[in-house]
Structure formats: C-alpha cells, structure tokens
Amino acid sequence: MSDLVRTEDLKKYFPVTKGLFSKVVGYVKAVDRVTLSIKKGETFGLVGESGSGKTTFGRTILRLIEPTSGRIYFENTDITNLKGKALRSIRRKMQIVFQDPYASLHPRKKVKDIVGEPLIVHNICKKNEVENYVKDILVKVGLDPKDIYKYPHEFSGGQRQRIAIARALILNPSFIVLDEPTSSLDVSVQARILNLLNLLKKKFGLTYLLITHDIAVVDYMSDRIGVMYLGRIIEIADKRELLNNPLHPYTKMLLSSVPVPDPKIAKSRKRMIPMGEIPSPLNPPPGCHFHPRCPYAMDICKRKVPHLINVGNLHEVACWLYEKK
C-alpha cells in the first residue's frame, strides 16, 4: 500500500515566554522529531495521554499549526511550505472532526450554513445548489434532510457529531483526522458514531488518523497503532501485534492501566500499577522521557534518546532494551 500522509522528522516546538518583553525561556516540544507514514485506506490510531502531543501532531499535518521543522508529504507532494491557492486545494482533501461537538459548531448558524460553507469557500457549486449538496450529505451521515434549517442546539450530542462529520465529508476528502471523535459521547451513542465512521470509510475509500486516549476505541477502529509519550512516537505496530505483544515499558503500563469491562478478567489479571506521573512537558527528563517511571531503566536511558528500531513483524519500538548490543 502506498503512503497517503508521511512526516519526516516533524517538529513543533511552542516557545515559552516570560516577562514584559516576552523573552523566550524554553520550549514545549509538543511534537519532537516524528517520522510516520499513514497508508492509503487504513485507520491509523494514535494513542497517548494528555500532553503527549497527539492533537498537535494531527493539526500540524493538516497545516492548521505551522511546523517548526521537518517535512509533511500528502500524496507524495511536499506540503510543508505550500501557500495560498495550492494549500487551499490540498486542504479540500484533508479534513478534521473535533472532540466536542458542542464547541465545534457555530451556535448561531443553521445546519445548511455550517455544512455548506466549505462548498462556498472552495467554489464547488453555485449558491442555489448548496442546499441539495447538504441534504445529500445529511442523508449519508444518518440525519434527516429536513433538519437543514435547524440550529446546533436543537440536536443531541450524537447528532451534532454527525453534523461535524457531514461538514468534514462534503468536499469529498481522502483523509480525515478524527480527534477524540467520541470522547464526549455516551457509550450507546459512541457505538453508533463508530459504526457510521466505519461505514463511511468503506463507502468513500477514506483514510483516517484516529487520535484518542481510549484503548477500546482504538482497538475496535484501527489497522495500525502508534503510541506517543511527551512528543515522541515510542512504538508503532499493527493493531493485534501492538495490543498482544507490547514491547515498550510505557505501552505495557498504559495497556495494563486500561480497565476492562469484564469483572472476571479485572480480578484475575496481573496488573502493572503505574509508577509516578507524566512529567511536565516544559521540562521533560533527559534521554528517554520515560526513564524515571520505567522499572527497567538503565544508565544509557538517562543520557541518550532511543530511536525507533524495527524488531520484525513491522513492529517498531524506541527503547534501549531492544537495541542490539
């Protein structure tokens, strides 16, 4: 399969300023040298806890946030420095759905204007055709085309998320970043949105980057999974391989922290109760960021950053334990 999106050494550093003249006193390395490829037609799940940089990564590859350095490729075109018309035309093909459908929809606009606006921005159709396009897409996401003149507050959380999905879909994109698309929804509603996303993916041949902290969701949806910790990708593998055979101590700790909806397993399984807390991204530990919480930390972990190495089975891990001596 060919790559749809690829990053090389992508960095996004946010400056931390202090004082009257905004002197830069340090950087938060939200995305730190991430090299990653997302294949055409797959759902790539990016997991990590708060502050790991997963959201910043998703926004940077869409050029919603300017990268500090590194390269971003979309369909083998370098889009890192695209501007103006060229950027706009590539943006048609990449869209995003946000976590909170209560915040991501304009409260004083009607569904027709929210979902139809991209058509006007990109000059896809005449103003009098917008309504038909919008009705058509509403049906595809499971909403009633009669709702076109309603406002967001007239819908439930799940329906609002459908509106957000309709807006992302209307330009017929090939790539959608799903940033915690079901985190603010109840489980019974979550089930429907996940089903819808899978259905749309098949129907329109979409590729997803699914950003989430919910392992159950990423397990259900993804083909491959990447794990982030403090700005770095620390492990990537096919879904089953990663979940059944996690290698990085952080991935192991993360997976064993996830509560399972089965009391028998919950009581019988051996758990690794995590040590410590995620350090401040302002001042992360040197070497491997995970070493202060790692039960297997060695001397080298404190000094040198481990790089992703392939350990076979297309399984990559950034940990000195797996480096060949």
């Binding site: 439930s156 799940g158 109840d186 489980v187 019974s188 509603v189 979550q190 089930a191 429907r192 996940l194 089903n195 899978n198 159950a216 969701v217 397990d219 259900y220 089953r240 979940l243 399972v260 909806p261």
Partner: peptide, 18 residues
C-alpha cells in the same frame, strides 16, 4: 455497545435516544 477487545464486527446500537 462497548467495543470489546478483538471484536471487529458492527457494534450493537440501541435504537432511539435517551
């Protein structure tokens, strides 16, 4: 409706809303 580890089929969803 909760996704279970390893399950790949369509998720069950209750009709209607709360």
């Amino acid at each position: 409706s909760i996704p279970k580890p390893g399950y790949e089929g369509e998720l069950y969803s209750m009709k209607g809303e709360i």
